[in-house]
Structure formats: structure tokens, C-alpha cells
């Protein structure tokens, strides 16, 4: 009888590694190495051409006194607050409506989802026109409703970020709706039947059955929506260019400007590291929170 060289466990491990290898290789090359390089670059001063100069923590220390960076950070948090809660509420609302037995359900689902698959540059340009203060359809509707001085949307520093946030909510609601629909379909109908028999009304069934059962889905949507809001770039680049002034200069836009306009790759990398730490911190905090508060038991 031949001796086995590897135990069953080891062979299984190797097999698993073999299956994972292509994905791991791509993750290593396109994610892990660039992230590592970005972190290392934060400790250098580099103009993108000449040899990089090691400057220790100088780039990171400069962030403490850089008002532009503080403003960008504040704008990014504000943008997250503007977009994430509204997106979650609306996408859950649409998911609940479009899981009910209504006519042309598939068509409505497709309509809500469509903005997400449309070109973000194209829709940003269209919204830029919609927001035209004098001739745009948005203000035309507001005027017809009796609003005498409608907002100047993208041309006012007070409303520009709100304008971008509205567009982004409209664009992403469909995506999160699909995730919520998937979550809603996993809730056993017997729970609703039991609640109904116990005399729970629609609102009570939502708070006592739907929401708790959707815990894992809601948690997933929250994490992804926050990460995405911290990474907002394209609609801002197209619609406002970070303006008026710096009113919509979120952190990713600022990082882009520092690196590719000002050729301060080291300083931009330091800011990217801070963004990475913030997003990571949020995500870890959310995971800790969900361990205590989210139930995966059906």
C-alpha cells in the first residue's frame, strides 16, 4: 500500500488555493501592491518624474495645518450625510413597493435601475443643464409651484453640493433597491402571516418584521453606500469641477488635483492614506456594531 504524501486537509487546502490563485493574483497586482505603494509614497516628496525624496512624516504633519484639506474632509462628510440616509430610505421604499403584486413591476424596476447603468458622465451633463438657474426645467417647475427665488443649484456655493447629492441619490437608488429586493425575498412569508394573525398592522409589521429581518442587507447597503460616498468623484468633476470656488471639492477630487494638477504625488498619497484610514475605521466600527445589533437568524 502506497503512503499518502499529503493529508486530506493539506490537499484540500492546496486545491482551494489553486482555485483562489487567479483572483488572489489580480487582487495582489491591482489592489494590494498599489495600496502599499500609495502608503509608502505618502512618506516621500515626488513630482512624478525626478527621484522621490524621503521626507518622513512631513506630508502627514502638513495635513494638520492645511485648511483646504480640512474643508475637503468636512465637505466629504457633509456629502455622505446628504446622500447615504436618503439613498437608503428611498431604495428600501422602492424595493418594498416593487416587491408587491403590482402591474408592470419589471418595467418599474428597470426604470428605477436604469440611471445606475447609464453613463455617469452623460447623466451628469444632463443634470447640469436641468439645474440651469434661469432656463433649467427644475427651476421652471419650482417657479410654476410659486417659488419666487428658486435655488441657483450648481452656481451657488450653498446649494452646489446638495445639487450633486440629489443627482447621485437619483442615480444610485436603483442599485441599492435591487439589493433590498433580494433581502426582502428571503424573509419567510410565514412571519408576516403570524404577525398578521397577532393583529400587527402594516407599520408594525415593517418595524417588527421587515426591518429586523433585513438587518444584514441594510448593514451591507450602509457599508457600501458610505464607502461609495467617500469615493465620489465623477459627478463632481463633470458638474461643478469642485466649485463654485471649493464648495464641492470632496477629498478624492482634492487628491486628484494635488497629484495630477500640482504634481504633488507624495502629498496627494498622504491624503489618500488618510481617506483609506477613515473608510477603514468606519467599516470596522460598523462591523463591530453589527455584531451586537444585527441578527442573521431567519
Amino acid at each position: 500500500m502506497k503512503k499518502r504524501i499529503l493529508s486530506t486537509q493539506s490537499r484540500n487546502d492546496l486545491l482551494a488555493l489553486g482555485f483562489l490563485a487567479p483572483n488572489l493574483a489580480l487582487f495582489l497586482v491591482f489592489m494590494l501592491i498599489p495600496i502599499g505603494a500609495g502608503i509608502v509614497m505618502g512618506f516621500f516628496q515626488w513630482d512624478g518624474y525626478n527621484p522621490a525624496e524621503f521626507v518622513g512624516f512631513k506630508n502627514f504633519l502638513r495635513l494638520f495645518s492645511d485648511k483646504g484639506f480640512h474643508d475637503s474632509l468636512g465637505i466629504t462628510f457633509y456629502y455622505t450625510l446628504l446622500t447615504v440616509p436618503v439613498t437608503m430610505v428611498l431604495s428600501l421604499f422602492f424595493a418594498m413597493v416593487l416587491t408587491r403584486e403590482i402591474g408592470a413591476k419589471a418595467l418599474f424596476r428597470a426604470l428605477v435601475f436604469f440611471p445606475y447603468i447609464a453613463s455617469i458622465v452623460a447623466v451628469s451633463i444632463v443634470w447640469q443643464f436641468l439645474y440651469n438657474a434661469d432656463a433649467g426645467p427644475v427651476n421652471a417647475v419650482l417657479r410654476s409651484l410659486g417659488v419666487e427665488n428658486p435655488p441657483r443649484w450648481t452656481s451657488s456655493k450653498d446649494t452646489a453640493l446638495i445639487a450633486v447629492a440629489i443627482m447621485n441619490v437619483w442615480r444610485t437608488v436603483g442599485y441599492y433597491m435591487v439589493i433590498f429586493i433580494a433581502g426582502l425575498l428571503t424573509i419567510p412569508p410565514t412571519l408576516y402571516e403570524a404577525a398578521h394573525i397577532d393583529g400587527a398592522n402594516l407599520v408594525q409589521r415593517f418595524w417588527r418584521v421587515t426591518l429586523p429581518m433585513l438587518g444584514p442587507t441594510t448593514f451591507f447597503v450602509l457599508v457600501i453606500a458610505i464607502i461609495n460616498s467617500f469615493q465620489a468623484f465623477t459627478p463632481i468633476y463633470v458638474m461643478t469641477g469642485g466649485g463654485p470656488g471649493s464648495a464641492t471639492q470632496v477629498l478624492v477630487f482634492r487628491i486628484y488635483e494635488e497629484a495630477f494638477v500640482n504634481s504633488l504625488f507624495g502629498y496627494a498619497s498622504a491624503q489618500a492614506v488618510v481617506l483609506f484610514v477613515i473608510v477603514l475605521g468606519f467599516t470596522i466600527f460598523q462591523f463591530r456594531w453589527q455584531e451586537k445589533n444585527v441578527s442573521y437568524m431567519a
Partner: peptide
């Protein structure tokens, strides 16, 4: 070396003026 940063700064201020901000 600051040409890009200076131009970007002037653009933003110019925009704030002519958008009445």
C-alpha cells in the same frame, strides 16, 4: 513649480466672483 496650483486658485476665485458667491 506652483503654476498649476496658482492657476487653479485664480480659477476658483474668478468663478466665485462671477457666480455671485
Amino acid at each position: 513649480r506652483n503654476a498649476g496650483a496658482l492657476a487653479s486658485m485664480v480659477n476658483k476665485q474668478l468663478e466665485l466672483l462671477f457666480t455671485q458667491n
